[in-house]
Amino acid sequence: MAQATGQPHFLQHHFTDVEQQRESAKLGMWIFLITEVLLFGGLFCAYAIYRSWNPDIFHNAHVHLDIFAGTLNTVVLITSSVTMALAIRSMQLGNRPATLKFLITTLLLAAVFLVVKYFEYSHKIHLGQLPGKFYTFGGIEGTNPHIFFSVYFLMTGLHGFHVLAGMGVITWLIVRTQRNAFSAEYYTPVEMTGLYWHLVDLIWIFLFPLFYLVG
């Protein structure tokens, strides 16, 4: 992909300069994030409909979620967003060791999030607080209480999958940072992953009150 003399090695042949390449990547990433918002949008829509039809069930069911775990995970994810932003800033300043440190911290925080989620899930599976035909829990009044857990598992599950995907990308970033692929001039992949990671965080910030704080 390297261009002839005088051009930086990371500039792809069809771009005229570094600025154009970075601007393109940024625009592309924002468009991708819009598709993510719409992907989740369908589920948010389903949430709104089923909650407006079954307000009592959503209220009675949400008390079975662990507010402490949810709050902890919110703090963990927000912190990971901060460390991600610091990783980008460090690379902009050309500080590779700091970038590595912050990326690894972000990865660990993402892992903490999933571990907490694992304990929440396994507790629910144990009690039978599950979607659809798997629902065997007896402690919630009203017809079709499983609908709350259907929406809960769908939305947090899809979000969890995004956290997992983000961990994969961050791992790849760590490897590439170690191999000295990025510099103060070229850090686009770090910045793009940061944008993605903030969106994953943002979605959780909506999920948390919608499920844990129904009221």
């Binding site: 719409l38 992907l39 949008g41 369908g42 659809g132 035909k133 079709n144 609908i147 769908l154």
Partner: peptide, 28 residues
């Protein structure tokens, strides 16, 4: 528009595989 089709078909597949009842009137 396409992401919305994506989530719709995903829901349909999950509904068919796991019977979560999201499109099934008998289950709300």
């Amino acid at each position: 528009a396409t992401p919305v089709l994506g989530i719709t078909l995903l829901l349909l597949i999950i509904e068919r595989v796991a019977g979560i009842g999201i499109f099934d009137p008998a289950m709300g």
